[in-house]
């Protein structure tokens, strides 16, 4: 036999990596949430403003960094995910929980740090913003809770049949 069996001799490569799956999918979740925010609220609804005149210099820099980081994270996340699939190291339960945790974390971060602390922009202009802020942050919390529940389920399932 001229070549080795492609599946033989690499047990390490086939073991699921729950931590890595969780982290990679959290990166993808956050980046996708950021892209959805950009597309739906900036471009389609025109609720957010491209530039709010009250934006300070620090906020502008943080916004630029975050925006670029989102783009790079989207690309990097999908390639890391492809690498996990290629090595068959993806742990699906942890991956799903990571996606929800990442998306929720971004939503809450955007709602609290960008909208309230740095005041880069608001959810909507010309109306009372309070209900929008509540809806925004509660939606983020809901995503985080879903992610947490999925994570505990994945952990329990992992404990039952150790890989």
């Amino acid at each position: 036999m001229s070549t080795s069996d492609p599946l033989a001799g690499t047990p390490a490569a086939r073991r699921p990596e729950p931590r890595r799956s969780l982290l990679v999918c959290a990166v993808i979740g956050a980046a996708v949430m950021a892209a959805v925010d950009e597309i739906v609220f900036h471009q389609l609804l025109h609720w957010h403003h491209f530039y709010d005149r009250s934006t300070s210099g620090v906020a502008l820099v943080s916004d630029g960094l975050l925006h670029t980081a989102e783009l790079l994270a989207l690309v990097a996340g999908f390639f890391l995910y492809a690498d996990l699939r290629r090595r068959r190291a993806l742990a699906p339960g942890h991956a799903w929980s990571g996606a929800f945790l990442g998306a929720g974390a971004f939503q809450v971060f955007d709602g609290i740090v960008d909208h309230k602390v740095l005041r880069v922009h608001q959810v909507r202009y010309g109306v009372d913003v309070t209900p929008y802020d509540w809806a925004w942050n509660l939606a983020g919390l809901a995503l985080l809770v879903i992610g947490g529940v999925l994570l505990s389920r994945a952990r329990r399932a992992g404990g039952r049949r150790p890989s």
């Binding site: 502008l60 820099v61 630029g64 670029t68």
Partner: peptide
């Protein structure tokens, strides 16, 4: 470097 350059470009565009 790509991240920093992209951020600088975005900040300049917004300004």
């Amino acid at each position: 470097t790509l991240l920093a350059a992209g951020a600088a470009h975005a900040v300049l565009a917004k300004s």
